[in-house]
Design a protein around this nucleic acid. Structure first.
Lengths: 140, 140
DNA sequence: GATATATGATTGAGTAATCAACTATTAAAC
DNA sequence: GTTTAATAGTTGATTACTCAATCATATATC
């Protein structure tokens, strides 16, 4: 499992790590009946200006396709975590807005998410984590 | 897109980064008719003691399920990148061994893989990449 | 203001993985 | 040496996505 450049090794290890982490964290989120990507939707909406984003913006943020977002959001809307809002300025857009229920569920899930995250990275200091995040920002 | 702990942010950004990187790199590998996971299979086999691994070991290394490996390796075997070998000591095992063709294709693909990897991480020094890899090793 | 083009979103078909259930073989317990 | 339990692998059904095609609306051009 060697012989490539540091860059290649970084890409490879990053992919493997992320799949491992997503599984662990996903398992923890499933207690709240939620997947990792659903959590990321709620997280993104929670941080958005008017607690709403268009499907395209959501796709951009999550690195997914527009159709992926359609299929991801549909069941969340059905169970009332988010609602569909139309943009009076542009009838093509349908904004996704987080509901009260969605906000409640998000904050509940965040607790567990934070807890498991801290556990998984307990051997890495905050300073180092921040340094990694800064370096991530430099990846093209 | 804030408010969680550094740990949580690390997990989230890591997932997003890795999906972005896999897409970029995957696109480059597709020139060789290969997916990222197929590349990882060849990479793992190339680095293995006798250029062969059991399905279970492969699953372990790639963080995938055994059935995932079965379905991933089957077409690779069909086009002759790997071959199935039986273990005389254990008739349950069927080892996956990289073929000459597989080795040739792997080394060809590695060139492009390395190239795109270097490009993507060109704003991060080797020292820093190695530091990140070391920190990855500390994640539970 | 009609026509061409671009953008936001959905749908159908396909792909890559998962889990649960199963088969085959091996190892352990008695 | 059976029976029991564990391990390696495959298969069927399902899930979560992708891409290409499509529809509806918006914008630009003439």
């Amino acid at each position: 499992m060697t012989d490539l450049s540091d860059s290649s090794n970084f890409i490879i290890k990053n992919a493997l790590l992320s799949s491992r982490l997503s599984k662990r964290v996903g398992h923890c989120l499933s207690v709240h009946g939620m997947s990792m990507t659903e959590f990321l939707v709620l997280h993104s909406l929670e941080g958005a200006p008017r607690k709403a984003l268009s499907r395209i913006e959501l796709a951009e943020l999550l690195g997914m396709s527009a159709s992926g977002i359609t299929r991801l959001v549909a069941p969340m809307e059905k169970i009332g975590l988010v609602s569909k809002e139309s943009n009076p300025r542009d009838a093509r857009q349908s904004l996704v807005k987080i509901s009260e229920t969605g906000q409640r569920l998000y904050s509940e899930a965040s607790v567990g998410f934070d807890h498991i995250s801290n556990e998984l990275t307990e051997n890495i200091s905050s300073v180092q984590l921040e340094k990694i995040l800064e370096l991530y920002g430099r990846v093209k």
